[in-house]
Design a protein around this nucleic acid. Structure first.
Lengths: 158, 158
DNA sequence: GAAATTGTTGATTAAATTGGTCAACTTAGG
DNA sequence: CCTAAGTTGACCAATTTAATCAACAATTTC
């Protein structure tokens, strides 16, 4: 039941873009560095996000990627769907018709409830929620040790 | 985010045992047949269930396995924990201390909420719930096509 | 328009995980 | 002592994961 790096890296990538919303194009190189994602891997990661209409990209100098919609209009459920496919814990929940006796299977019902529980969280969380949470954490951190003026500081995935 | 066969087969195995609660030992061979699990694989599956104190086993003729506790005292959360390990979608949720800056990570919070959502379902579901759901399905099925007297019938994972 | 910069695509690959098998062994019953 | 079970450990094939590399396409800048 673990998320793959696609889901983790991809979510971080989109949060990065959301934090830079309104600032134009962000080069993949920068994202790769801040989020500690191998650049060649990130290049492949963004393909489904472009295909899914979440981001746009431009090549050449000053090129990069940016969100196509404001962060508050992008739900985590869309993101994970694009990157990981269905979050259903078993395949028979996704396409019941392919499993002839799924209507006789008691365990299937439970896995569907699990799916609904996960979906409830992802469907009610937007990139904007993540942005606010992130900024709040940075502020808290600044207060906690404001002797060194550091929030956000170099290396903090800003 | 898919469950492996360990979780799926294991849950079915325990539901099978719960359906036979009070009838003594159930041979692995029978479970393997009913649940369509390769016997040699099932043998390995039960090891963590024994170690976890969910079932007991006896070798030799008339041997087999059975639940150690009544079905209503076995929660699905225990089962999945034993078979799949933590259901947290990312490792940093399990042991935050291993991830130095997890307190600065906004995405981590969301994955923890997902974990809690999953846990809510699994923690509130017992094997007895599955048993009742299963028996109910069999009864419904009997009514739906009672021209053929079939519920439960041969091959229906009873 | 040449050169540099950046994203795109497809092939390839190493490592890990999954799902399963096989064989030797142990224990219990008759 | 023989047979019917479960136990354990080694092993293995297939798949998935997490990349990397190279060739290419588009865009900007000089």
């Amino acid at each position: 039941m673990k998320l793959s790096t696609k889901g983790r890296y991809g979510t971080r990538t989109l949060l990065d873009l959301a934090l830079h919303w309104g600032e134009g194009l962000v080069p993949l190189k920068d994202i790769a560095q801040r989020q500690e994602i191998p650049l060649p891997y990130l290049e492949h990661l963004i393909a489904p996000l472009i295909a899914g209409g979440l981001i746009r990209s431009t090549r050449g100098p000053q090129g990069g990627v940016s969100l196509l919609k404001p962060p508050e209009e992008i739900k985590l459920s869309e993101v994970i769907q694009l990157l990981e496919g269905s979050i259903a814990p078993v395949k028979c929940v996704d396409n019941p018709d392919a499993y002839p006796r799924s209507d006789l299977c008691a365990t299937r019902d439970i896995w569907d409830e699990v799916r609904k529980a996960i979906d409830g969280v992802l469907e009610s969380t937007t990139l904007q929620d993540l942005v606010e949470r992130q900024r709040q954490k940075w502020n808290l951190n600044r207060w906690q040790d404001h002797r060194k003026n550091n929030a956000p500081k170099e290396g903090d995935n800003l």
